[in-house]
Design a binder for these strands. Structure first.
Lengths: 191, 191
DNA sequence: CGCGGGTTTGATGATGCTCAAGCCCGGTGG
DNA sequence: CCACCGGGCTTGAGCATCATCAAACCCGCG
């Protein structure tokens, strides 16, 4: 479980050894069991999460009671409801562990202190958000351009390991269609 | 034309007067005529753009020849194809002025120098990307949850001025449906 | 063994696209 | 100043994609 965040930070900025440990002290380590929620609708999302091991998803439940997964976070990804986190407003989302998961978490006050004490961490987070934003631009393109069948083909083609790892209905709720339809797509695929 | 970027930066970080001018010297001022492209498919997107006045859009053309608008950038917004910009890869997008537009632009080398010389600008860009990413999380939610009719209602309700400003077919290409269908939606609205 | 969550199957129907035509209106050239 | 473009918006018929609902099935787990 150790040092994964430290290693990740070191990929983007350089910190002296002792600073590196100091920086880590701003974070709290958390373990989640499968299906455990760490954020529920109506709460303020108080922390920003870094996945060391396992898998998180962020989703919401619409008025018909259907879950829609906004995003997944695998190892080495950050996840939070940013609107809620940065403005301390109640969230419309849930964050849940898909598998047993090890996290590092930081809250807003500590993040502010951290950034003040170690301004080089601004660069780290700038890069993190920049990458996340870049990924989102591509995602919007795919959503606009691809049919459901194409979305599934592409996603399954690029992330075969991930597809193994999550149940079909979560995949469907992420790609934006129903489990029934995904089932139909898979059947056609085999012929 | 004056000082708009300077003012925007000052909203998020504080720079001494002379630094502030120094920072601005890293940017280039550009004027675009209506419908003029500043990025075309196949080129590397070499700059990051800040809109001082006017309106940009980023779009691509799919294999059927249909344009899809990924995002708009109004006054005080940044826009670039991040994947192309940060990795210097050919872009799949166009960036075009919807109206006559005044920009500030920075390229990757200058951005790197700027961030090195004025590390506090890391904070500025961190905040910019963080806000953009937050907006995207919401957008993904809406795309998943709302029907086309609801998308239009919500968007027109929240941005009435913007809807006045752009032709219907651009709005449709942004919201993810055809101009014909938008026309039909508007007709139903009036009854 | 039985229960229950997840997946499959199929019938029906709504949403939104395609294609083709007509219309409205502002701009341009004669 | 008028005539005629031509781009954008509208209208409508027919059709593809995908959702909904309900039932059956499969299989791992208690």
């Amino acid at each position: 479980m150790p040092e994964i965040l430290k290693t990740h930070i070191a990929r983007f900025i350089s910190l002296k050894g002792e600073d590196s440990s100091q920086v880590l002290s701003f974070f709290q380590s958390i373990h989640l069991k499968k299906k455990q929620n760490i954020l529920s609708e109506g709460q303020v999302c108080k922390q920003h999460y870094f996945v060391e091991k396992g898998l998180l998803r962020m989703f919401y439940i619409n008025d018909k009671g259907v879950e829609h997964t906004i995003q997944f976070a695998l190892e080495n990804w950050w996840l939070t409801d940013l609107m809620s986190y940065q403005d301390r407003r109640p969230s419309g989302f849930y964050i849940q562990a898909v598998e047993a998961t090890e996290l590092m978490a930081i809250n807003l006050e500590d993040q502010e202190k951290l950034l003040e004490q170690y301004p080089v961490m601004e660069k780290y987070f700038r890069i993190i958000f920049q990458k996340a934003y870049a990924a989102n631009q591509l995602r919007i393109k795919y959503i606009h351009d691809l049919s459901s069948a194409e979305m599934y083909d592409r996603f399954a083609g690029q992330n075969p390991a991930f597809v193994q790892r999550v149940p079909q209905y979560l995949l469907a709720s992420f790609l934006g269609f129903t489990p029934e339809y995904l089932s139909e797509l898979r059947r056609k695929k085999l012929s």
